[in-house]
Simulated scan of single mutants.
Amino acid sequence: MSLSAAFNSLKSSNLISWKTTGKLQQTLAGCIELAGKTLHTGKVSKVKVLPGFAGEGRNFEFQSKLIPASIDFARESPLCTTLCKDGYKIRTVEHLLSALEAKGIDNCIIQIRSLDPEDSEVEVPIFDGSASAWVEAIEQVGRKEALDRCGNNAEKLAPYLNEPLHVLRNDSFIVGLPSSEVCITCGIDFPKVNSFFLCYADLNSCHCFYASLAKIYVNYIQVEHMRAAGLIKGGSLDNAIVCSATKGWLNPPLRFHDEPCRHKVLDLIGDLSLFARSGSQGFPVAHIVSFKGGHSLNADLVRRLSGINV
């Protein structure tokens, strides 16, 4: 049985067919080490990304615990994507995963630690609020063909959407439509903001030219509410763009006129990468249409793709 046939036999619905990309799985050609302040806790954390074995995918390592970057370990959390296992949590993984997915780093080990060795929860650094630091680090170290533990390479598969599907929460929704290429349409409803964005390209070009430089955006009236809830302790005008309904952008200029939509695409790629299996591509080959989407809705879509009722 071929690898694609094996994948298709595992799925619990007819939504997805796994097909070869004509490429071999990749990993990093060296190690990446970055440290920085985190968005929600405001603490400093250190991340080391190492090459991984073919077929093993992307895995986080925290306090000697291995947590796969999989929807099976994703949990609801405000304003970020969190992975949990055995009482340990890793927050705000979406920007790093977005860069790894788009740059084709299919297999790697992501070691992360905080300055407090007793912490059971840690967060990926926020840097400037975009994924540019991760993209630059990946491009600097480069990538290479991944080999499994027996020294063999492995083909890379991609999930193709076979039929339309949708997920929704209140007035927010994501629709997936069958397509021969990756296409992303994003819409938001935010004061003083260009509300729509479209990209039609492979993941790498979409991410590098449209999404990776886009910073987090927030509504000014929400800032104090989030801080009162114990969030965004590390947030600042250096790592987010802030908008007022009456005054517009409080810290211009924007990098792009549609930067908030571009950041939604950045998050979408990172969250949907949680569908990846055994070094495969996680983001489905489909036309994904998102309106007022967020991390929870993105996770709902991945669960639907995985045959999990939501």
Results as ranks from 00 to 15, higher is better:
L168I: 02
V182G: 00
C150H: 02
A131D: 01
S13Y: 06
K215T: 13
F256T: 09
L24P: 02
H263F: 07
H263L: 09
A245Q: 10
T82Y: 08
L10Y: 13
A240R: 03
K247D: 14
G235A: 07
E61N: 14
E163N: 07
C243R: 04
K19R: 12
L147A: 00
P117E: 08
L165V: 08
C84T: 14
C206T: 14
L272T: 12
K144G: 01
P117W: 09
I174S: 01
E136F: 06
V141N: 00
R58S: 02
A286V: 04
A211P: 04
A5G: 12
R143Y: 03
N8T: 01
R227V: 08
L268M: 14
P253T: 05
D86R: 03
I221E: 15
L39T: 05
E224R: 14
L305M: 12
G187F: 02
I216F: 12
Y210N: 15
N59C: 15
G22E: 01
E56Q: 15
E123G: 00
L79M: 11
K19S: 12
S64Y: 14
G151P: 00
I288C: 10
S114V: 04
H295S: 07
N107K: 04
A74T: 12
M226D: 10
S236G: 11
N14I: 00
P51S: 05
F275Y: 13
G36Y: 09
N194M: 13
A54N: 06
S306C: 07
L213C: 12
S130I: 01
A154F: 02
E121N: 05
A102H: 05
N170D: 08
E136S: 03
I105S: 03
V218I: 13
C208F: 15
V93M: 02
I126E: 03
V193D: 01
G307Y: 01
G293Y: 14
E121Q: 12
F73G: 05
D267A: 11
F127D: 00
L165M: 08
P252A: 02
I288F: 06
V124R: 01
G36A: 07
A35F: 06
A229T: 06
K156G: 00
L272G: 08
L168A: 13
E155R: 00
L161A: 02
A99D: 06
A131N: 01
V285W: 10
S236M: 06
R113F: 13
L96S: 09
G270F: 07
I288G: 11
V182R: 05
V44M: 01
N107C: 09
P178Y: 03
L198Y: 11
D300I: 06
E33K: 14
P68K: 09
I105R: 06
S244H: 09
F283V: 15
V265L: 15
C186H: 05
V135G: 03
N298A: 04
N309C: 09
G176W: 02
H166G: 00
G129R: 00
F275A: 04
G55D: 11
A29D: 13
G235Y: 08
E33A: 13
